[in-house]
């Protein structure tokens, strides 16, 4: 346990050090992108990994929050109103999504969320009087909480890091809580959960709301980061990207979506320097991971390491018995 805490502290320190270690703004911005997408992926993972409900409409949820913030700011409201409005809009939309899509599970759930996501995209694209259509809405300023300006790359990174750390902590607490256990139960055995006295629908609904809250937070970060929002951010591609982050990193793990977000953002930025478009690669990674490493990179790597660890220990007979007993448990 202490090793874990030490690793965690080291990771946080490393994240804090990023703007100091990297002086080039471009890379600090990429780090900010990774963190804000990680918040989005963490939210999606609650539903996909822990709830077993694969959503292909989550970009619609973050997108509604982005648009609400941009719209309110463009209408002359302050940042507090914009952020509160964005969260409210995101949550109301999430409740609508949940009410409609939770009538189903499995493949039907995917189709319904996909269709709902497309509705939101269609509105963003066509409801020109509100959304300005394909031209999108620009955001003039970033907020300056407590007098700290987020206008610079470093300032924005710090703010995003704080939000990201809160999101990770919230997810960690959530998945280890009794409610988190109940959610995982509805993923594995919904029928049994019902027979044990759990309200499966309502558990899924609240999980969806939590997931939507994180999506909305990511949407707000997104619109402030880009200082712009357009329908592209709500397209099916964006939802699929989020799903790729979750699945590539490892659905149902805390670290997985973060690693997945880093992978996708880095590949996207590095590759876009060489190829104009990177959708082909996105699709190819998707297919390869689903076919060859369905559990995702984090659990997959852990598994490989375990195998390597065991085979490295095997030659010495004296320690073989110790290796056979699970770590941390006293030998009988």
């Amino acid at each position: 346990m202490t090793v874990r805490h030490a690793l965690l502290a080291a990771a946080i320190l490393a994240l804090i050090a990023v703007p100091y270690a990297i002086t080039e703004q471009y890379y600090v911005n990429i780090a900010s992108q990774i963190l804000l997408y990680a918040v989005f992926a963490l939210g999606l993972n609650i539903l996909v990994g822990y709830g077993g409900l694969v959503s292909l409409g989550h970009a619609g949820l973050s997108g509604v929050a982005s648009y609400a913030a941009a719209y309110l700011l463009a209408a002359g409201h302050g940042h507090v109103v914009a952020i509160a409005g964005a969260l409210a809009a995101g949550l109301v939309t999430t409740a609508g999504f949940a009410a409609l899509s939770l009538r189903a599970s499995g493949i039907s759930f995917i189709m319904i969320t996909l269709a709902l996501g497309e509705i939101i995209w269609g509105l963003a694209y066509r409801w020109i009087s509100i959304t300005n259509g394909d031209n999108g809405i620009s955001v003039a300023t970033r907020p300056a909480p407590f007098g700290l300006s987020l206008a610079s790359a470093d300032g924005f990174y710090d703010a995003t890091l704080i939000v990201f750390l809160i999101a990770v902590a919230a997810c960690a607490i959530f998945v280890h809580s009794p409610f988190g256990a109940a959610l995982a139960g509805t993923r594995d055995q919904p029928r049994r959960m019902n027979a044990l006295g759990f309200h499966v629908w309502l558990i899924r609904f609240w999980a969806f709301m939590f997931s939507g809250l994180l999506s909305a937070v990511a949407g707000i970060l997104f619109v402030y980061y880009n200082e712009f929002i357009s329908p592209q951010a709500l397209a099916l591609t964006a939802s699929a990207e989020g799903l790729l982050m979750v699945i590539s990193g490892g659905a149902g793990t805390l670290l997985g979506p973060v690693v997945g977000a880093a992978l996708v953002v880095i590949v996207k930025n590095v590759v876009s320097a060489y190829i104009a478009r990177w959708n082909f690669l996105l699709g190819a990674i998707f297919v390869l991971i689903v076919v060859f490493m369905p559990e995702g990179l984090v659990p997959g790597t852990v598994r490989l390491f375990r195998v390597a660890w065991r085979s490295a220990r095997r030659p010495k007979p004296a320690t073989a018995a110790a290796a056979a007993t699970p770590a941390g448990e006293p030998k009988p």
Binding site: I247, N279, I285, F286, V290
Partner: peptide, 9 residues
């Protein structure tokens, strides 16, 4: 998910 990936490609 595979059909989704192929559609992007």
């Amino acid at each position: 998910l595979v059909t989704l990936g192929v559609s992007f490609m």
